[in-house]
Structure formats: structure tokens, C-alpha cells
Design a protein around this nucleic acid. Structure first.
Lengths: 117, 117
DNA sequence: CAGCATCCTCACCGATACTG
DNA sequence: CAGTATCGGTGAGGATGCTG
């Protein structure tokens, strides 16, 4: 299990949820895996070049431990690993949608406010 | 404006949203203000004794700058300040609800898994 | 009552190099 | 290809004391 990176408060269910998607890239990763599943490690690297290899693995491992993504290893040479979202992950992705909507609206609002210059 | 505490990615609207509620206690604070508004500074301290005074103020200020809560000062002795959520804040609270639901379910799932010991 | 100022820690995250 | 290992920076967050 991902060590609760910050020991978030867990009243009202928000704490646990934020513990799962609170990493710097986790929400984005979940979203992208959900779009392009099943997808390989290198694919994720291509999709999000900004993220370092270390954080990519680390976040993937934590999300796997949290049961929101699934990791399937094909024992071949060269190695091949595919990531996909679990049902819990899909639900989480759904729960994230309204938040993303709000984020967009909020961006528009703040940009509209800034153009009063 | 709250300096994006971590420089979160902002594709798909999730970045901006997490920038607003990404602080350790922000989501919880928004939720509690929404429940008990209008509420005073000391009331928030009582409701959430775990949070330090510094973080309380800091988060309140950032959320005010982000336009999700409103801060009203009554010029009296002793001073009196009341916090309430703005309409944007109420929308955000709404968008947070599915996430909180998911968090609860996730807690149950992980606890059920743990009791296999 | 409702803050502000300071110092300090530590865990998140990045960069780089190496491996099965 | 898909990782692992290690070193180090940085800044969010905690503790404490003071003020209008």
C-alpha cells in the first residue's frame, strides 16, 4: 500500500481518496491509462514525457497496491508489461470527472478575471 | 492566488482543481465551512483541533484567493471574522461528493481485505 | 479573538547511473 | 524493454512565540 504520503485526515472519505490520487501525477496517469488501456510502460512514458521514470514506476506501483490499476507481466524477451485500470479504478475515474469539469470552469473564471488588466 | 504548491500538470482540468484542494486540509476545510457556514475562525479551530493555526490561516487565505470561500471582517473589539463558501466553492463541494463516496467504499474494500489475517 | 513571524524537519520529487 | 539504486534539493507543513 502506498504509504499515505502525507498523513491526510480521513473524516468524510475524502482523505483516503486524496491519498490515492494525491501524488503529483497520479490522477493524470489514471486518466491516461483509462483512455489507452491496456498500455505498456514505454507508452506511458511517451504520453507523458515530463514525468521521470522513477516517479512513473513509483506511482504505478502505489496505484497497483491501492487496487486501482492492474499490472500484467508477459515473460518474454524483451520484457513486456501492460497496465490497465481495475473496476475500482474505473469508478475512481468516474468520480474524478466532476472535479475535472470544475477545474476547467475555474480556469475560465480566473482567466476572465485576469484579462481586466 | 495560491501558488500551485506543486506544479501540477493541467491537462484535462484536474490540475487546477487539485491545485485548489490539494493542500493537506483544504478539502476538509471546504467541506466543514460548507456545513457550518457562516463560521468563525475559532469555530474552525474547534472543529478541527489537529490542524495548526498557521496552516488553518494559510489554507483559508489561499482558498479565498482562489475564490472558493468568502471572508467577512467585522471591525469590532474583540475582532470577529466569518467564513463562508462562495458559489464556486459550493460547486466545488458538489464536485467533491462523488470522490468522498468513492473514498468510503475504498476504505471498506481495503479493510475487508485486511481482515483475511 | 484572530492572526503574523520564524525556525526547522522530512518526505516528495528530480537527476543520474546501472541491471535482468 | 522495463525497471532498480542512490544522492541530493526543495518547499509544504509543524512548533512555538508574539501582536493589534
Amino acid at each position: 500500500m502506498a504509504r499515505k504520503q502525507k498523513n491526510l485526515p480521513d473524516s468524510c472519505g475524502l482523505g483516503p481518496a486524496l491519498a490515492v490520487i494525491g501524488g503529483k501525477w497520479k490522477a493524470l496517469l489514471l486518466w491516461q491509462i483509462h483512455q489507452a488501456q491496456p498500455c505498456r510502460f514505454s507508452e506511458l512514458k511517451r504520453l507523458q514525457p515530463e514525468i521521470s521514470e522513477k516517479m512513473l514506476i513509483q506511482h504505478l506501483r502505489e496505484m497497483e497496491a491501492d487496487g486501482v490499476i492492474h499490472r500484467e507481466v508477459f515473460h518474454q524477451v524483451p520484457p513486456r508489461v501492460e497496465y490497465s485500470v481495475t473496476s475500482a479504478g474505473a469508478e475512481l475515474d468516474h468520480a474524478l470527472a466532476p472535479l475535472a469539469e470544475w477545474g476547467k470552469k475555474h480556469l475560465e473564471r480566473t482567466e476572465a478575471a485576469r484579462e481586466k488588466s
